[in-house]
Amino acid sequence: MTAPAASAHHGARRVLPGFRLTLGYTLVYLSLIVLIPTAAVFLRTMDLSFGEFLDVISSPRLLASYRLSFGAALLAAAINALFGLLLAWALVRYSFPGKKIVDALVDLPFALPTAVAGIALATLYARNGWLGSIFEGLLGFKIAFTPWGVLVALVFIGLPFVVRTLQPILEDLETELEEAAASLGASRWQTFRHVVLPVLTPPLMTGFALAFARAVGEYGSVIFIAGNIPLVSEITPLLIITRLEQYDYTGATSLAVVMLVFSFAMLLLINCLQSWSAKRTGRTA
């Protein structure tokens, strides 16, 4: 926003009051809650020389954990984007018995303590569990205590993000646009692909980013179902905890720095993609 030029004479008086108060509050709050703790992580890591730092963060066991943490988080976010879209579509566009219950169920992963979710998932997908017995017993596909188990847990906790970001946009989407497309001869698929999806892409990316960010940092629900086998199903947050339990604080913060930088880079990339797509389609003029 640019301040109106005419107001420059009067010491940039604004129409909306409270600018200084809100900005000041925002900065103090963000510093206390986000910036200072994050900086502390970096400072703590400074105890190590750069060479030592590289050694700590590049052991094979850690490299395997990065792959799993970020790989599974990306895949889980992608799965959630796809099925979250379907869910949001069904919830907004159709009315069916029990719709309110389904809508409330979506929030369950938000509300459930993660450890409870983790134990529930582990029990369900273990060899003797309801689903585990089907997958493992009949299909010979192990889920619990493998990387697939990690993926299942991350999909579970990320689901609400996509659904809840898409729902309001879908509700606002005029059905007239689809009617217009149909009257111009577009098929159902063409209408979705060229008219509906472009409108949904920005919220879909936001939901994806949120689900991804949550999944990268997830601990409680994952460790029970992951089995935590070194080099196979260990996630990075687990290794951080392990370090902490051994009183190796510098080692723990080193890993934290890696996660921070990675996550930040990913989110930045997603944001850039978003603004690029917005510019391309003239939403920011």
């Binding site: 007239e176 009617e179 098929s187 060229h194 472009p198």
Partner: peptide, 17 residues
């Protein structure tokens, strides 16, 4: 789709993107 009618809406229904 198959009726070959052109329809103009009160609120235009242009594709904003």
């Amino acid at each position: 789709r198959e009726r070959q009618v052109g329809f103009v809406f009160q609120h235009y229904a242009l594709f904003k993107h």
